[in-house]
Design a binder for these strands. Structure first.
Lengths: 332, 332
DNA sequence: TTGTAGGCGTTATCAG
DNA sequence: CTGATAACGCCTACAA
């Protein structure tokens, strides 16, 4: 490994001058600077980031800790984060928690130990991991889900309002027994979507019934089973509000197996506008969340903190958009 | 920031002993060890990974450099990598190149500068970035696409054979003018799929015609346009082989706009078995690639190198599976 | 403008 | 088994 002192030696200068020349910081005699740059090129010198960061006590790396790399909602967030971070010279490390508090904690520890500059995370719920960051005053932004103690910049989507709107929409289409399939209890977005669903029922003078609600993990398999379960009841729901797109896959599979057609037999609205939603027959009505914007905004907030802004933490709530397609209208 | 010497001081031992106790390496008097551990806990000590890695000259982080975080094929690879890496105590950094050689190079440089333990990448084609790794002898595994010079462990899928098989399948279903939509020239998987398509035509005594082939980037928008283009010709194709699932979205959109029904009007087979493929009407025939296995195998190979295996580089070619659904059969 | 020298936090070496 | 001490590679006072 060639080090800066190799470069310095070859250029016949001190390591200090070499460092200065390479970083373009303080003023260096152009002649010497040229010699240094030439030497560096000849030796194919690459700075050792570890040493540099150890010295500078910071790393130009941001951690983005999310609960599912395979969920398009989160990968869209990742793009938003990455575009902004890149532009500012930061790299982004994507970490996958699988909704497990233990993994989240582990990744937070990694972020701390590697002295990463900041963390963007969608908290799994339990606050434990976050306290570590708070204690160390590592800049942090919460996305998608708020943090309990919440002296933290946060970017959310108004899930509850969106769920309410979707539910009202289903009611207006004439569906009577509207069911809801949401994520695990304790996961804030799942709770919010359920609350919004109940708001919607109330607004349209419907009674909410526990038998119309199922909670599973935010994945296809659970939703599939839950749907079969819901629809095998005596008075099954004639519409479903589904809390994310992975679950929607399971729901639609189940409906197909039961030979029920979305829209005609069972109204369906799902969160997240996946690229394939419009391809289905009938096309799937969705609640489109501004995922890319969440990511880019979160990154922007984090960068502001990194450059020393000491304003009070803000919470931004973006709104989602109901995109009505035919899975939620009474047409056959 | 509390350092190891704080811990040592509080436990009344030297930093050396503290380090040993904390790492459980060499044998330490149980009494002292206990004091150290207690002190560390009381001070909420977190080791500084930078310093440790600088000293150890290695980092327990692997870089996974892929061309598109939003492509389910790559996220599935990521899971495979992550599961294996995690189990071995490594963290995984996911980097997104957007198929741009410049970004690839940048991430490779980051990986080198941060002294990451190894790199798994799906090369964009140009070899430049890879040479950096070779020169430094950073352990590396190529996935999905081979490397030119190729003294490197590689995990591939037999795209060509799979494309051939898919094409033959379409021919056997009675489609006469089979077209092909593939990725950019120079991207190996795109070239292979095209070659396999031509193999398939040849095997079924069909002539290949340039007018039945379109190449665009591996994304939905380009495929959409290309499909409109292909089908607006005098003698349009009656079947299409599509090189990935993002492109399939664009193709299916275009078909819907033209009021053409997959299977009946235009046979369609696409690479990658996305979770939604079976939900479409008609369900989409796909070439399922073993993405998770690619990732886990690649990670395993990399870990072997890290632990000092000096065997010759291997190239593993996994096979893909044609999953026949109704988009490629003549039923209406 | 340049060079010298010290330290970032850890771990490895080598005496004791 | 323990403790000084010397690196790891880089950056930055400080002095020249």
């Amino acid at each position: 490994m060639t080090t800066i002192s190799d470069v310095a030696a070859r250029a016949n200068v001190s390591t200090a001058t070499a460092s200065r020349a390479l970083n373009g910081k303080s003023s260096v005699d152009p002649v010497l600077a040229a010699r240094v740059v030439a030497a560096a090129r000849e030796l194919d010198y690459r700075p050792n980031g570890l040493a540099r960061n150890l010295r500078r006590r910071e790393t130009a790396v941001l951690a983005l800790i999310i609960s599912d790399v395979e969920n398009p909602f989160f990968t869209a967030i990742a793009r938003g984060v990455e575009d902004v971070a890149q532009a500012a010279g930061y790299s982004v490390v994507l970490c996958n928690t699988d909704e497990e508090a233990a993994k989240e904690r582990r990744y937070v520890e990694v972020a701390i130990e590697e002295q990463m500059a900041g963390v963007i995370l969608s908290p799994t719920g339990v606050a434990s991991a976050v306290d570590l960051l708070r204690d160390r005053q590592t800049p942090m932004v919460a996305v998608d889900r708020p943090l309990p103690g919440a002296a933290t910049d946060t970017v959310l989507v108004d899930s509850r309002q969106a769920a309410r709107q979707a539910t009202v929409h289903l009611a207006e289409q004439g569906y009577e027994l509207i069911g809801c399939l949401t994520g695990p209890s304790g996961v804030r977005t799942a709770d919010d979507r359920l609350a919004g669903y109940r708001d919607g029922l109330r607004a349209t003078k419907r009674r909410s019934a526990a038998r119309l609600v199922r909670r599973t993990e935010y994945r296809s398999a659970g939703a599939h089973q839950a749907t079969l379960d819901l629809l095998s009841q005596p008075y099954p729901p004639d519409a479903l509000l589904v809390a994310n797109s992975a679950m929607a896959v399971g729901v639609l599979q189940a409906l197909a197996e039961l030979d029920l057609r979305p829209g005609r037999d069972v109204g369906v609205v799902a969160f997240d506008d996946a690229p394939w939603a419009a391809l289905l027959d009938p096309p799937l009505t969705v609640v489109a969340q501004p995922a890319y914007e969440i990511g880019s905004l979160a990154a922007q907030l984090l960068l502001n903190r990194l450059t020393g802004s000491h304003t009070d933490p803000t919470t931004t709530t973006l709104s989602a958009q109901l995109v009505i397609r035919r899975s939620s209208t009474r047409h056959p």
